[in-house]
Amino acid sequence: MVRGKGKNTAVGYVRVSTDDQADSGLSLSHQETRIRAYCEAHGLELIAVVSDEGVSAGKPFADRRGGAEVLGMIAAGTVHHVVALKLDRVFRDAGNALAQSSAWDKAGIGLHLIDMGGQSINTRSAMGRMFFVMSAGFAEMERGLIRERTAAAMRVKRERGEVISRPTLGFDAVDGKLVRNDGEAALIARIYDMHKGGASYNAISKQLTQEGVRTKRGGSWHATTIRKLVLRAA
């Protein structure tokens, strides 16, 4: 709830993608705890913590539900500081980070990143702004290097005819090659026939779970998984 419009008012922003949710170091609760502690230590009045759950960093900040809410609070003059745990919680790349932070800087909005290589950054100070620009550039360079190394490794694997990802249901990886798994192929055929017979995705997932049938990774069945298999088999 908004309590005031002083120059020290802040909004915290937390985000997790689907993969991040299993990482306790990036969980929503962990991010919020760090943000609250930071604001208390730096005299910021935290009036809200806005979250985006299951949202990729590739989605522009303004297009996220939580991101749009933060921008609305800034436009209304409700807050003057945005606090997040890490750079990649807010921005999709260095260019996006620099453009958005520059706009906020002109509007008198401070961006606080609690953990930038073990140090906190506040763009309201000249030194903080300089370190932010440098850190964003180095982060982008590192992502680029990782992409290049990954692409090179995948290219070599393809040239060797090796499996480059986990085999899907119906296949196994044997000596680096994909080999048909007849038992799993039969399961896919059964799922397809059940759906053609009128069973919903949800009903099929419940039936398999009740029978004790596990997914390839040993987990439980979900309607979305059944849908993918049916579409693949069609």
Rank of each mutant, 00 (worst) to 15 (best):
M1R: 13
M1T: 14
A10L: 00
G12V: 04
R15M: 04
T18Y: 10
S24A: 11
G25I: 00
L28D: 00
R34Y: 05
I35Y: 01
A37T: 13
E40D: 15
G43A: 07
G43R: 07
L46A: 08
A48P: 01
E53V: 07
G58R: 15
K59N: 07
R64V: 04
R65H: 09
L71Q: 09
I74D: 06
A75N: 12
A76I: 06
G77N: 10
G77Q: 10
T78R: 05
T78H: 02
K86E: 02
K86T: 02
L87E: 00
A94N: 05
G95F: 05
A99N: 13
Q100W: 02
A107L: 14
H112K: 05
I114P: 02
Q119P: 03
S120L: 04
S120R: 03
T123H: 01
S125H: 04
S125D: 11
A126M: 13
G128K: 07
M134P: 01
E140M: 06
R143H: 12
I146M: 11
R147T: 09
R149W: 08
A153H: 00
V156Q: 08
R158T: 07
G161N: 09
E162L: 15
I164N: 12
I164Y: 10
R166M: 15
A173C: 15
G176N: 12
K177W: 05
V179I: 11
R180K: 13
N181F: 01
D182V: 12
L187F: 02
H195S: 09
S200M: 08
A203E: 12
S205V: 04
K206L: 14
G212H: 02
V213P: 05
R214Q: 15
R217L: 14
H222G: 13
A223W: 11
A223K: 14
T224G: 07
T224M: 08
T225C: 07
L229F: 08
V230R: 04
R232I: 04
A233K: 13
A233G: 07
